[in-house]
C-alpha cells in the first residue's frame, strides 16, 4: 500500500537518507526504529511530500506522492513529532480549523470532532486552551487532529516523546485499536520497547540507512546469541566490570551492564563461574532474552541511546 523506493535525500554534505526502500502492506503496524538523528523524521517528511528527495519516489496504492499532488495526501494521517497545534487556541478550535481544511463542515465536522475527542479521552477538556494541557494531553490532541479525516495510513513520528506513562499507554492502546480496525500504521521511535510491543514488522534505520528489517523474531534470529547476560550496576560490580572485557561485548545502561558473550562462554555455567571468580556475585547476574537493542548493538557496535 505504501511503497518507498530508493529514496535519497541530503542536506548539504550530509546524506540524511541513503537509498531507502520500504514496502508497507495494508493493515500492517510497521515500526521504524533508530537512534536520534538516524533520519526517521526526514523519511516521514518525504513520505508526506513536505521534502522532495533527490532520488527515488514514494507511492500510495501505486500513485506517486509529490509536492503538487495534494489530493493523495488525504489518505495520510500525519502525526508530527512536534506538537503541531495552535497553542493559544482551545482543543476544539484546533480540531475545527484543521477539520475544515479537510473539507469537513457542519454536523459532520462536529460529529467527527466528538468522535476523536472521545477516542483520545479528552472530551471534557474540549474548551480548554492547548497550552494549558500536560505533555501527554497535547500529544493526544496532536494525534486526534490527524484522525479527523479518517485516513487509511497513519504516520506517527515518535508520538510518545515527553509523555507520562499513563498517556503513553493510552496512545499505545488507541493505535492498537486503530490498527485492528484496519488502518495501516507507520510508527517511528527510538525506544526499542515500543517497537517490540507494537509493531508486527519493523525496520532499523541508522545514519540514513536501513540496516535490517523483518518481524521481531526475524531480527532476533539474526543474532547468534538469543540471550544476553545482564549485570546489575552496583557499587561492587562497577569496579569489576573492566576485568571481564574479554568475555564479549559489554554495553553500559543506566542501571545495568549488558554482556553479549563470545563463543568461549556459550554455556551459561562457564559464564557464571568466571563472573564469580572476578568477584561479581550471581545475585547480580541475570540471563535475558535478546532484544532489539541487542540487534542494534550487534549491527552497529553502538547502543540505541548513544
Amino acid at each position: 500500500m505504501l511503497k518507498i523506493k530508493n529514496i535519497t535525500k541530503s542536506f548539504g554534505s550530509l546524506t540524511a537518507l541513503d537509498n531507502i526502500s520500504l514496502d508497507i502492506e495494508k493493515g500492517e503496524f510497521f515500526g521504524l526504529l533508530g537512534p536520534n538523528g538516524a533520519g526517521k523524521t526526514t523519511l516521514i517528511n518525504t513520505i508526506i511530500g513536505y521534502l522532495e528527495p533527490e532520488l527515488g519516489n514514494v507511492s500510495i496504492d501505486g500513485e506517486d506522492i509529490t509536492i503538487e499532488n495534494t489530493q493523495l495526501r488525504k489518505k495520510i494521517g500525519y502525526v508530527p513529532q512536534e506538537i503541531a497545534l495552535y497553542l493559544e487556541l482551545t482543543a476544539y478550535q484546533n480540531l475545527k480549523i484543521f477539520g475544515s481544511i479537510f473539507d469537513l463542515k457542519g454536523n459532520e465536522l462536529e460529529k467527527k470532532i466528538n468522535e476523536v475527542m472521545e477516542l483520545v479521552q479528552l472530551t471534557d477538556r474540549k474548551k480548554d486552551k492547548v497550552k494549558d494541557f500536560s505533555g501527554g494531553m497535547k500529544r493526544r490532541i496532536n494525534l486526534a487532529v490527524s484522525l479527523l479525516h479518517n485516513p487509511d495510513i497513519i504516520l506517527c513520528d515518535e508520538p510518545t516523546v515527553g509523555v507520562d506513562p499513563q498517556s503513553r499507554n493510552a496512545i499505545f492502546e488507541m493505535l492498537h485499536d486503530l490498527n485492528k480496525e484496519g488502518k495501516t500504521i507507520l510508527y517511528t521511535t527510538h525506544y526499542m520497547e515500543e517497537a517490540e510491543r507494537l509493531c508486527s514488522r519493523l525496520a532499523i534505520i541508522d545514519n540514513g540507512k536501513i540496516i535490517a528489517q523483518g518481524t521481531l523474531v526475524d531480527l532476533i534470529n539474526m543474532l547468534e546469541q538469543k540471550e544476553t547476560i545482564k549485570i546489575q550496576k552496583t557499587a561492587f560490580t562497577q569496579d569489576k566490570i573492566s576485568a571481564i572485557s574479554d568475555m564479549g561485548i559489554i554495553s553500559e545502561h543506566d542501571f545495568y551492564y549488558e554482556l553479549i558473550v563470545n563463543d568461549k562462554y556459550k554455556q551459561h555455567s562457564k559464564t557464571f563461574i568466571r563472573l564469580e571468580e572476578e568477584g561479581i556475585h550471581n545475585e547480580f547476574v541475570q540471563v535475558s532474552r535478546a532484544t532489539l537493542e541487542d540487534v542494534f548493538l550487534n549491527l552497529t557496535g553502538r547502543s540505541l541511546r548513544d
Binding site: N45, I48, G49, Y50, I67, E68, T70, Q71, R73, K74, I76, Y78, P80, Q81, E82, I83, A84, L85, Y86, L87, F98, I101, F102, D103, V145
Partner: peptide
C-alpha cells in the same frame, strides 16, 4: 517552528 505549517502542507494545502 511549531510544525503547524508542515501539518497544513501535508493536508491538501499548497504553499
Amino acid at each position: 517552528q511549531e510544525g503547524t505549517l508542515k501539518r497544513l502542507l501535508c493536508m491538501s494545502v499548497s504553499r
